[in-house]
């Protein structure tokens, strides 16, 4: 489950629009609560990170370097937060995880995806969804959005 406030979703929107027609990517920072056997991830901040995939592939791919991951985790720690997931955009594609997303994902994290598209000649954001990889890595499950 994820608690993704509207203010954070709007910031992910903005990052997606800025990167269009390429994919944006970044870290979700916040905290984790145990709710029964499930985890509830509260997102309170994002940290935009460079998409380091080759420029000609960025329309459908992103890569975060280990150095940038470490920087995000260390930044989260100094803010008293945890790195609870990642976001990225799908330009001209639905806000649903691809097989490539699943093959490269980790369990116990939230993966937020924003669809971006051209609307009236300008880059715009569409749906924002959140997903969690199953422990056996076989599928992504849509995360329940919890409003607190």
């Amino acid at each position: 489950m994820i608690d993704l406030p509207l203010s954070i979703a709007k910031r992910v929107h903005a990052e997606g629009v800025l990167a269009f027609p390429n994919e944006c990517c970044g870290a979700l920072l916040g905290s984790v609560d145990a709710v029964g056997t499930q985890e509830l991830r509260h997102v309170v901040d994002i940290l935009a990170l460079p998409n380091t995939r080759e420029a000609e592939e960025q329309y459908h791919r992103f890569v975060i370097t280990p150095e940038d991951y470490l920087r995000a985790e260390q930044f989260a720690r100094t803010e008293g937060l945890d790195l609870v997931g990642f976001y990225h955009s799908h330009p001209n594609a639905p806000a649903r995880p691809s097989d490539y997303d699943r093959e490269h994902a980790w369990p116990n994290l939230s993966y937020v995806i924003v669809a971006t598209l051209l609307r009236d000649g300008k880059a715009a954001a569409g749906d924002v969804t959140s997903w969690e990889l199953s422990l056996d890595r076989s599928r992504f499950d849509a995360e329940e959005q919890v409003a607190l």
Binding site: P21, E23, C25, R53, E57, Y59, H60, R61, F62, V63, I64, P66, Y69, L70, E73, F86, H88, H90, P91, N92, A93, P94, P97, S98, D99, Y100, D101, H104, A105, W106, Y111
Partner: peptide
């Protein structure tokens, strides 16, 4: 010592629009 997972992904879009 930090253990750092590789992070990547991307859409199913087959070619640039």
């Amino acid at each position: 010592v930090s253990i750092v997972p590789a992070i990547a992904g991307g859409s199913d879009l087959a070619r640039r629009v």
